[in-house]
Nucleic acid binder design. Structure first.
Lengths: 199, 199
DNA sequence: CGAAAATTTGACATGACTCAACTGGAGTGG
DNA sequence: CCACTCCAGTTGAGTCATGTCAAATTTTCG
Protein backbone atom coordinates (compact mmCIF):
# COMPACT_ATOMS: atom_id res chain seq x y z
CA UNK A 1 0.00 0.00 0.00
CA UNK A 2 1.62 3.26 -1.08
CA UNK A 3 1.52 6.63 0.63
CA UNK A 4 -1.24 8.14 -1.46
CA UNK A 5 -3.42 5.15 -1.02
CA UNK A 6 -2.92 5.34 2.72
CA UNK A 7 -3.88 8.99 2.90
CA UNK A 8 -6.84 8.24 0.67
CA UNK A 9 -8.14 5.74 3.22
CA UNK A 10 -8.12 8.48 5.82
CA UNK A 11 -9.94 10.90 3.57
CA UNK A 12 -12.51 8.29 2.64
CA UNK A 13 -13.07 7.74 6.31
CA UNK A 14 -13.64 11.44 6.95
CA UNK A 15 -16.03 11.63 4.06
CA UNK A 16 -18.23 8.95 5.53
CA UNK A 17 -19.16 11.51 8.14
CA UNK A 18 -18.67 15.01 6.75
CA UNK A 19 -18.20 16.89 3.50
CA UNK A 20 -14.63 17.89 2.85
CA UNK A 21 -13.71 20.62 0.40
CA UNK A 22 -10.74 19.82 -1.79
CA UNK A 23 -8.86 22.64 -0.16
CA UNK A 24 -9.22 21.03 3.25
CA UNK A 25 -7.82 17.72 2.20
CA UNK A 26 -4.30 18.93 1.99
CA UNK A 27 -4.54 20.82 5.23
CA UNK A 28 -5.61 17.61 6.86
CA UNK A 29 -3.29 15.09 5.33
CA UNK A 30 -0.24 17.30 5.68
CA UNK A 31 -0.57 17.00 9.44
CA UNK A 32 -0.82 13.22 9.46
CA UNK A 33 2.12 10.92 9.51
CA UNK A 34 2.26 7.29 8.41
CA UNK A 35 3.70 4.67 10.75
CA UNK A 36 4.52 1.11 9.81
CA UNK A 37 4.67 -1.35 12.65
CA UNK A 38 5.47 -5.00 12.99
CA UNK A 39 3.61 -7.56 15.02
CA UNK A 40 4.14 -7.03 18.76
CA UNK A 41 5.46 -3.48 18.31
CA UNK A 42 4.12 -0.97 20.79
CA UNK A 43 2.38 2.25 19.91
CA UNK A 44 2.05 3.18 23.57
CA UNK A 45 3.30 1.83 26.87
CA UNK A 46 2.04 2.37 30.39
CA UNK A 47 3.67 5.42 31.90
CA UNK A 48 3.82 7.35 28.64
CA UNK A 49 1.52 10.20 27.77
CA UNK A 50 -0.43 9.52 24.61
CA UNK A 51 0.34 12.40 22.26
CA UNK A 52 -1.28 11.20 19.08
CA UNK A 53 -4.60 10.19 17.69
CA UNK A 54 -4.10 7.07 15.63
CA UNK A 55 -6.11 5.62 12.80
CA UNK A 56 -5.64 2.03 11.69
CA UNK A 57 -5.30 1.92 7.92
CA UNK A 58 -4.38 -1.73 7.77
CA UNK A 59 -3.86 -4.48 10.30
CA UNK A 60 -5.09 -4.83 13.86
CA UNK A 61 -4.10 -3.84 17.37
CA UNK A 62 -5.02 -4.48 20.96
CA UNK A 63 -5.08 -2.27 24.03
CA UNK A 64 -4.55 -3.70 27.47
CA UNK A 65 -3.68 -2.83 31.04
CA UNK A 66 -1.91 -4.93 33.64
CA UNK A 67 -3.76 -5.82 36.84
CA UNK A 68 -2.13 -6.19 40.28
CA UNK A 69 -1.04 -9.72 39.42
CA UNK A 70 0.54 -8.63 36.17
CA UNK A 71 -2.16 -10.23 34.06
CA UNK A 72 -3.15 -8.52 30.82
CA UNK A 73 -6.68 -7.08 30.77
CA UNK A 74 -7.71 -6.33 27.20
CA UNK A 75 -9.70 -3.13 26.87
CA UNK A 76 -10.04 -2.84 23.14
CA UNK A 77 -9.43 -4.74 19.96
CA UNK A 78 -9.26 -2.74 16.78
CA UNK A 79 -8.84 -3.19 13.05
CA UNK A 80 -8.89 -1.25 9.80
CA UNK A 81 -10.79 2.02 9.91
CA UNK A 82 -10.82 2.26 13.69
CA UNK A 83 -9.26 4.95 15.76
CA UNK A 84 -7.24 3.54 18.58
CA UNK A 85 -5.94 5.36 21.61
CA UNK A 86 -6.08 5.75 25.34
CA UNK A 87 -8.35 8.77 25.29
CA UNK A 88 -7.92 9.31 28.99
CA UNK A 89 -4.20 9.85 28.64
CA UNK A 90 -4.53 11.76 25.40
CA UNK A 91 -7.22 14.17 26.51
CA UNK A 92 -5.97 14.83 29.99
CA UNK A 93 -2.31 14.57 29.04
CA UNK A 94 -1.63 12.23 31.93
CA UNK A 95 0.51 9.08 31.94
CA UNK A 96 -1.37 6.15 30.49
CA UNK A 97 -1.95 2.85 32.23
CA UNK A 98 -2.37 1.14 28.92
CA UNK A 99 -0.31 -0.65 26.36
CA UNK A 100 -1.21 -0.48 22.69
CA UNK A 101 0.39 -3.24 20.73
CA UNK A 102 0.20 -4.53 17.18
CA UNK A 103 -1.56 -7.83 16.69
CA UNK A 104 -0.08 -8.14 13.20
CA UNK A 105 1.93 -6.08 10.75
CA UNK A 106 -0.03 -2.83 10.50
CA UNK A 107 -0.18 0.60 8.95
CA UNK A 108 -1.14 3.46 11.22
CA UNK A 109 -1.71 7.05 10.37
CA UNK A 110 -1.38 9.47 13.22
CA UNK A 111 -1.62 13.12 14.14
CA UNK A 112 -0.21 14.89 17.16
CA UNK A 113 -2.55 16.42 19.68
CA UNK A 114 -1.11 19.83 18.92
CA UNK A 115 -1.86 19.52 15.23
CA UNK A 116 -5.30 18.05 15.75
CA UNK A 117 -6.21 20.91 18.04
CA UNK A 118 -5.09 23.30 15.31
CA UNK A 119 -7.19 21.44 12.77
CA UNK A 120 -10.21 21.71 15.06
CA UNK A 121 -9.84 25.48 14.94
CA UNK A 122 -8.94 25.83 11.28
CA UNK A 123 -11.19 23.25 9.67
CA UNK A 124 -14.70 23.17 11.12
CA UNK A 125 -15.43 19.96 9.25
CA UNK A 126 -12.79 18.21 11.33
CA UNK A 127 -14.33 19.41 14.55
CA UNK A 128 -17.69 18.29 13.29
CA UNK A 129 -16.26 14.96 12.22
CA UNK A 130 -14.78 14.44 15.61
CA UNK A 131 -17.95 15.25 17.43
CA UNK A 132 -19.82 12.72 15.33
CA UNK A 133 -17.18 10.06 15.77
CA UNK A 134 -17.00 10.42 19.48
CA UNK A 135 -20.76 10.48 19.82
CA UNK A 136 -20.85 7.26 17.92
CA UNK A 137 -18.14 5.74 20.02
CA UNK A 138 -20.03 6.78 23.11
CA UNK A 139 -23.16 4.98 22.02
CA UNK A 140 -21.17 1.84 21.27
CA UNK A 141 -19.50 1.97 24.66
CA UNK A 142 -22.85 2.34 26.30
CA UNK A 143 -24.06 -0.80 24.62
CA UNK A 144 -20.94 -2.56 25.75
CA UNK A 145 -21.49 -1.48 29.33
CA UNK A 146 -24.97 -2.84 29.26
CA UNK A 147 -23.64 -6.08 27.85
CA UNK A 148 -21.00 -6.35 30.52
CA UNK A 149 -23.34 -5.55 33.36
CA UNK A 150 -26.51 -7.48 32.76
CA UNK A 151 -25.70 -10.33 30.38
CA UNK A 152 -24.21 -13.78 30.86
CA UNK A 153 -20.87 -14.80 29.44
CA UNK A 154 -21.96 -16.92 26.51
CA UNK A 155 -24.54 -14.45 25.28
CA UNK A 156 -21.89 -11.74 25.40
CA UNK A 157 -19.48 -13.89 23.50
CA UNK A 158 -21.96 -14.83 20.84
CA UNK A 159 -23.08 -11.24 20.38
CA UNK A 160 -19.51 -10.09 20.05
CA UNK A 161 -18.36 -12.60 17.46
CA UNK A 162 -21.57 -12.09 15.54
CA UNK A 163 -21.06 -8.36 15.48
CA UNK A 164 -17.45 -8.70 14.33
CA UNK A 165 -17.51 -11.92 12.36
CA UNK A 166 -13.84 -12.21 11.51
CA UNK A 167 -12.56 -11.33 14.94
CA UNK A 168 -12.05 -15.00 15.70
CA UNK A 169 -9.75 -15.46 12.76
CA UNK A 170 -7.63 -12.47 13.63
CA UNK A 171 -7.36 -12.46 17.41
CA UNK A 172 -6.54 -15.38 19.69
CA UNK A 173 -9.28 -16.68 21.95
CA UNK A 174 -7.52 -15.56 25.08
CA UNK A 175 -7.67 -11.95 23.98
CA UNK A 176 -11.33 -12.16 23.14
CA UNK A 177 -11.95 -13.78 26.51
CA UNK A 178 -10.05 -11.06 28.32
CA UNK A 179 -11.87 -8.38 26.36
CA UNK A 180 -15.18 -9.89 27.41
CA UNK A 181 -14.00 -10.20 31.00
CA UNK A 182 -14.06 -13.98 31.24
CA UNK A 183 -11.28 -16.53 31.58
CA UNK A 184 -10.00 -18.33 28.54
CA UNK A 185 -10.66 -21.70 30.22
CA UNK A 186 -14.27 -20.86 30.83
CA UNK A 187 -14.70 -19.56 27.31
CA UNK A 188 -13.28 -22.80 26.00
CA UNK A 189 -15.77 -24.72 28.12
CA UNK A 190 -18.65 -22.57 26.89
CA UNK A 191 -17.68 -22.92 23.26
CA UNK A 192 -17.73 -26.67 23.58
CA UNK A 193 -20.97 -26.74 25.52
CA UNK A 194 -22.78 -24.51 23.03
CA UNK A 195 -21.11 -25.81 19.89
CA UNK A 196 -24.43 -26.15 18.13
CA UNK A 197 -25.37 -22.55 18.89
CA UNK A 198 -22.31 -21.25 17.13
CA UNK A 199 -23.05 -22.42 13.59
CA UNK B 1 -35.41 28.58 42.05
CA UNK B 2 -36.56 31.20 39.54
CA UNK B 3 -36.20 31.14 35.79
CA UNK B 4 -33.13 33.36 35.60
CA UNK B 5 -31.35 31.38 38.21
CA UNK B 6 -32.11 28.19 36.29
CA UNK B 7 -30.72 29.56 33.04
CA UNK B 8 -27.72 30.86 34.93
CA UNK B 9 -26.92 27.33 36.08
CA UNK B 10 -26.81 26.25 32.46
CA UNK B 11 -24.56 29.12 31.46
CA UNK B 12 -22.25 28.47 34.39
CA UNK B 13 -22.03 24.91 33.24
CA UNK B 14 -21.09 25.93 29.70
CA UNK B 15 -18.47 28.29 31.03
CA UNK B 16 -16.72 25.53 32.88
CA UNK B 17 -15.68 24.26 29.48
CA UNK B 18 -15.66 27.13 26.97
CA UNK B 19 -15.67 30.90 26.77
CA UNK B 20 -19.05 32.34 25.93
CA UNK B 21 -19.44 35.84 24.57
CA UNK B 22 -22.34 37.78 26.08
CA UNK B 23 -23.98 37.83 22.70
CA UNK B 24 -24.06 34.03 22.57
CA UNK B 25 -25.74 33.65 25.92
CA UNK B 26 -29.09 34.79 24.70
CA UNK B 27 -28.87 32.73 21.54
CA UNK B 28 -28.29 29.71 23.71
CA UNK B 29 -30.78 30.22 26.49
CA UNK B 30 -33.57 31.27 24.16
CA UNK B 31 -33.54 27.74 22.74
CA UNK B 32 -33.74 25.99 26.08
CA UNK B 33 -36.93 25.27 27.90
CA UNK B 34 -37.42 24.64 31.60
CA UNK B 35 -39.32 21.56 32.76
CA UNK B 36 -40.48 20.88 36.28
CA UNK B 37 -41.13 17.26 37.16
CA UNK B 38 -42.37 15.44 40.18
CA UNK B 39 -40.99 12.26 41.67
CA UNK B 40 -41.72 9.25 39.43
CA UNK B 41 -42.57 11.40 36.40
CA UNK B 42 -41.12 10.18 33.14
CA UNK B 43 -38.95 12.19 30.79
CA UNK B 44 -38.79 9.34 28.31
CA UNK B 45 -40.41 5.95 27.92
CA UNK B 46 -39.35 2.92 25.90
CA UNK B 47 -40.72 3.14 22.40
CA UNK B 48 -40.41 6.90 22.17
CA UNK B 49 -37.74 8.70 20.20
CA UNK B 50 -35.65 10.96 22.38
CA UNK B 51 -35.90 14.40 20.86
CA UNK B 52 -34.21 16.52 23.49
CA UNK B 53 -30.95 16.90 25.26
CA UNK B 54 -31.65 17.39 28.93
CA UNK B 55 -29.64 19.01 31.66
CA UNK B 56 -30.45 18.43 35.32
CA UNK B 57 -30.53 21.76 37.12
CA UNK B 58 -31.85 20.37 40.36
CA UNK B 59 -32.88 16.96 41.60
CA UNK B 60 -31.95 13.50 40.39
CA UNK B 61 -33.09 10.95 37.83
CA UNK B 62 -32.50 7.37 36.82
CA UNK B 63 -32.39 5.64 33.46
CA UNK B 64 -33.32 2.00 33.09
CA UNK B 65 -34.35 -0.67 30.63
CA UNK B 66 -36.52 -3.71 31.17
CA UNK B 67 -35.02 -7.15 30.61
CA UNK B 68 -36.91 -10.18 29.24
CA UNK B 69 -38.34 -10.87 32.67
CA UNK B 70 -39.54 -7.31 33.11
CA UNK B 71 -36.90 -6.49 35.68
CA UNK B 72 -35.49 -2.97 35.72
CA UNK B 73 -31.84 -2.69 34.73
CA UNK B 74 -30.49 0.68 35.76
CA UNK B 75 -28.11 2.20 33.24
CA UNK B 76 -27.47 5.58 34.71
CA UNK B 77 -28.09 7.61 37.82
CA UNK B 78 -27.78 11.37 37.49
CA UNK B 79 -28.00 14.52 39.55
CA UNK B 80 -27.47 18.26 39.31
CA UNK B 81 -25.21 19.41 36.49
CA UNK B 82 -25.43 16.17 34.56
CA UNK B 83 -26.81 15.71 31.11
CA UNK B 84 -29.17 12.82 30.95
CA UNK B 85 -30.46 11.10 27.84
CA UNK B 86 -30.54 7.97 25.79
CA UNK B 87 -27.94 9.10 23.30
CA UNK B 88 -28.57 6.11 21.08
CA UNK B 89 -32.17 7.10 20.52
CA UNK B 90 -31.38 10.79 20.32
CA UNK B 91 -28.52 10.56 17.86
CA UNK B 92 -29.94 7.91 15.60
CA UNK B 93 -33.54 9.06 16.00
CA UNK B 94 -34.68 5.53 16.73
CA UNK B 95 -37.16 4.38 19.36
CA UNK B 96 -35.55 4.13 22.74
CA UNK B 97 -35.47 1.03 24.92
CA UNK B 98 -35.03 3.15 27.98
CA UNK B 99 -37.09 4.86 30.61
CA UNK B 100 -35.93 8.09 32.20
CA UNK B 101 -37.69 8.76 35.44
CA UNK B 102 -37.40 11.30 38.23
CA UNK B 103 -36.02 10.06 41.50
CA UNK B 104 -37.26 13.19 43.27
CA UNK B 105 -38.83 16.51 42.40
CA UNK B 106 -36.49 17.96 39.78
CA UNK B 107 -35.83 20.86 37.46
CA UNK B 108 -34.69 20.02 33.96
CA UNK B 109 -33.64 22.33 31.20
CA UNK B 110 -33.89 20.94 27.71
CA UNK B 111 -33.29 21.72 24.07
CA UNK B 112 -34.70 19.98 21.02
CA UNK B 113 -32.39 18.17 18.66
CA UNK B 114 -33.36 20.55 15.89
CA UNK B 115 -32.39 23.58 17.92
CA UNK B 116 -29.20 22.07 19.23
CA UNK B 117 -28.13 21.22 15.70
CA UNK B 118 -28.78 24.84 14.77
CA UNK B 119 -26.72 26.01 17.72
CA UNK B 120 -23.86 23.75 16.65
CA UNK B 121 -23.77 25.59 13.32
CA UNK B 122 -24.36 29.10 14.62
CA UNK B 123 -22.32 29.11 17.81
CA UNK B 124 -18.97 27.37 17.45
CA UNK B 125 -18.48 27.52 21.21
CA UNK B 126 -21.45 25.21 21.63
CA UNK B 127 -20.02 22.70 19.19
CA UNK B 128 -16.72 22.94 21.00
CA UNK B 129 -18.46 22.54 24.33
CA UNK B 130 -20.20 19.46 23.14
CA UNK B 131 -17.08 17.85 21.82
CA UNK B 132 -15.40 18.39 25.17
CA UNK B 133 -18.38 17.10 27.13
CA UNK B 134 -18.76 14.00 25.10
CA UNK B 135 -15.04 13.29 25.16
CA UNK B 136 -15.21 13.55 28.90
CA UNK B 137 -18.22 11.31 29.10
CA UNK B 138 -16.43 8.81 26.90
CA UNK B 139 -13.46 8.64 29.22
CA UNK B 140 -15.74 8.14 32.22
CA UNK B 141 -17.61 5.41 30.43
CA UNK B 142 -14.37 3.72 29.58
CA UNK B 143 -13.40 3.65 33.22
CA UNK B 144 -16.75 2.21 34.03
CA UNK B 145 -16.30 -0.56 31.51
CA UNK B 146 -13.02 -1.48 33.02
CA UNK B 147 -14.64 -1.50 36.44
CA UNK B 148 -17.47 -3.69 35.27
CA UNK B 149 -15.29 -6.14 33.46
CA UNK B 150 -12.32 -6.95 35.62
CA UNK B 151 -13.32 -6.05 39.17
CA UNK B 152 -15.27 -7.88 41.86
CA UNK B 153 -18.61 -6.67 43.15
CA UNK B 154 -17.58 -5.17 46.45
CA UNK B 155 -14.64 -3.26 45.02
CA UNK B 156 -16.97 -1.85 42.38
CA UNK B 157 -19.47 -0.83 45.00
CA UNK B 158 -16.91 0.79 47.23
CA UNK B 159 -15.36 2.68 44.36
CA UNK B 160 -18.74 3.94 43.25
CA UNK B 161 -19.99 5.22 46.58
CA UNK B 162 -16.61 6.76 47.24
CA UNK B 163 -16.68 8.57 43.92
CA UNK B 164 -20.22 9.86 44.51
CA UNK B 165 -20.38 10.15 48.28
CA UNK B 166 -23.99 11.20 48.64
CA UNK B 167 -25.40 8.71 46.19
CA UNK B 168 -26.39 6.45 49.05
CA UNK B 169 -28.52 9.14 50.64
CA UNK B 170 -30.32 9.94 47.44
CA UNK B 171 -30.88 6.63 45.69
CA UNK B 172 -32.16 3.39 47.18
CA UNK B 173 -29.76 0.48 47.48
CA UNK B 174 -31.61 -1.58 44.91
CA UNK B 175 -30.96 1.02 42.25
CA UNK B 176 -27.31 1.24 43.08
CA UNK B 177 -27.12 -2.54 43.01
CA UNK B 178 -28.81 -2.69 39.63
CA UNK B 179 -26.56 0.03 38.28
CA UNK B 180 -23.52 -1.97 39.36
CA UNK B 181 -24.98 -5.15 37.91
CA UNK B 182 -25.39 -7.07 41.14
CA UNK B 183 -28.48 -8.17 43.03
CA UNK B 184 -29.71 -6.18 45.97
CA UNK B 185 -29.55 -9.26 48.20
CA UNK B 186 -25.94 -9.86 47.39
CA UNK B 187 -25.10 -6.22 47.92
CA UNK B 188 -26.75 -6.37 51.29
CA UNK B 189 -24.66 -9.41 52.16
CA UNK B 190 -21.47 -7.69 51.02
CA UNK B 191 -22.21 -4.53 52.94
CA UNK B 192 -22.58 -6.51 56.12
CA UNK B 193 -19.54 -8.64 55.51
CA UNK B 194 -17.34 -5.63 54.82
CA UNK B 195 -18.90 -3.24 57.30
CA UNK B 196 -15.52 -2.22 58.67
CA UNK B 197 -14.24 -1.36 55.18
CA UNK B 198 -17.00 1.15 54.65
CA UNK B 199 -16.15 3.66 57.36
C1' DC C 1 11.46 -31.28 13.49
C1' DG C 2 11.31 -29.03 17.89
C1' DA C 3 10.06 -25.31 21.03
C1' DA C 4 6.95 -22.01 22.38
C1' DA C 5 2.36 -20.40 22.41
C1' DA C 6 -2.53 -21.23 22.41
C1' DT C 7 -6.21 -24.06 23.60
C1' DT C 8 -8.58 -27.65 26.00
C1' DT C 9 -9.73 -30.58 29.95
C1' DG C 10 -10.93 -31.78 34.56
C1' DA C 11 -11.15 -31.30 39.64
C1' DC C 12 -12.17 -28.16 42.80
C1' DA C 13 -13.22 -23.56 44.94
C1' DT C 14 -15.93 -19.46 45.31
C1' DG C 15 -18.53 -15.47 43.92
C1' DA C 16 -22.89 -14.28 42.84
C1' DC C 17 -27.82 -15.37 41.97
C1' DT C 18 -32.58 -17.16 43.26
C1' DC C 19 -36.29 -17.57 46.04
C1' DA C 20 -38.86 -17.19 49.97
C1' DA C 21 -39.33 -15.47 54.40
C1' DC C 22 -38.61 -11.93 57.68
C1' DT C 23 -37.72 -7.09 59.63
C1' DG C 24 -38.38 -2.43 60.00
C1' DG C 25 -39.66 2.03 58.70
C1' DA C 26 -42.78 5.50 56.14
C1' DG C 27 -46.96 6.72 54.83
C1' DT C 28 -52.13 6.52 55.17
C1' DG C 29 -56.63 6.36 56.70
C1' DG C 30 -59.81 5.62 60.38
C1' DC D 1 -52.72 7.53 67.98
C1' DC D 2 -53.12 2.99 66.32
C1' DA D 3 -53.56 -0.56 62.80
C1' DC D 4 -52.55 -1.44 58.26
C1' DT D 5 -50.16 -1.65 54.14
C1' DC D 6 -46.35 -1.02 51.25
C1' DC D 7 -41.79 -0.80 50.15
C1' DA D 8 -36.86 -1.19 51.01
C1' DG D 9 -33.64 -3.81 53.03
C1' DT D 10 -31.90 -8.10 55.28
C1' DT D 11 -31.15 -13.12 56.07
C1' DG D 12 -30.36 -17.81 54.98
C1' DA D 13 -30.51 -22.14 52.25
C1' DG D 14 -29.63 -24.01 48.09
C1' DT D 15 -27.86 -23.62 43.41
C1' DC D 16 -25.49 -22.12 39.38
C1' DA D 17 -22.08 -19.50 36.92
C1' DT D 18 -17.59 -18.58 36.63
C1' DG D 19 -12.82 -18.64 38.35
C1' DT D 20 -8.36 -21.14 39.72
C1' DC D 21 -4.79 -24.18 39.03
C1' DA D 22 -2.25 -27.76 36.96
C1' DA D 23 -1.82 -30.88 33.35
C1' DA D 24 -2.61 -32.56 28.67
C1' DT D 25 -3.17 -31.52 23.94
C1' DT D 26 -3.01 -29.00 19.76
C1' DT D 27 -1.37 -25.37 16.88
C1' DT D 28 1.97 -22.15 15.26
C1' DC D 29 6.16 -20.90 13.63
C1' DG D 30 11.12 -20.60 13.45
Amino acid sequence: MDTNETYQKLIDHFREYVDLAEIDIDRITSKFEIIYIKKKDYLLRAGQISNHMRFIVKGSLYVYTLDEKGKECVNQLGFEDWWINDLYSYLRQKPSEMYIQANEESIIIRISKKDLDILFKEVPAVSEFWRLKIQNAYVLLQERIFGNTHIDAFTKYKAYVTKYPNIEQRFPQYMIASYLGITVEYLSYLRKKHLSDLF
